[in-house]
Design a binder for these strands. Structure first.
Lengths: 64, 64
DNA sequence: TCGCTATGTAAAACATACTTTACATAATGT
DNA sequence: ACATTATGTAAAGTATGTTTTACATAGCGA
């Protein structure tokens, strides 16, 4: 799974911490996802897409 | 989180067990998701959407 | 140089997703 | 009545996602 969260975050001019706060998660969670240490839950993926006003598929791409 | 997996499965004329096999998960996992006992991982959500040839948002809807 | 901000990272604890095994029930066909 | 198929369900174990706390590093402005 790949993601371009960093790009979306940059587009919105937010630090990891600010984004984390807006999504009610910790900075470590945002950081780990951006660095692709793990994938978010489906719920958090939805919250991210809602916040960035895009689809989950706009942020995450799954390569089988 | 809501989902209409049952509808997509019906559309494809599959039992829970058949779908599970096609997705390489257990029947219990499919069953639990359909009954909304828990949400799938983002990865499994992607695999479901890929299999049904639709988007994640076509299957799952997140209500904040 | 000093202090501040943003990011990387790691360990422990906790929550959720998934598997395995197993049993129950309801519907169907013989 | 019996066997078969599809689904519901539950407990124990493993894997993954998330939080909390804490420390490290690099960049930047005073």
């Amino acid at each position: 799974m790949k993601n371009n969260m960093k790009v979306w975050r940059a587009k919105n001019n937010l630090t990891q911490e600010e984004l984390a706060k807006k999504l009610s998660v910790t900075r470590q969670t945002i950081n780990a996802i951006e660095r692709e240490k793990y994938d978010p839950s489906l719920e958090l993926a939805f919250r991210l897409a809602f916040f960035f006003e895009c689809t989950i598929e706009d942020i995450f791409t799954y390569e089988k």
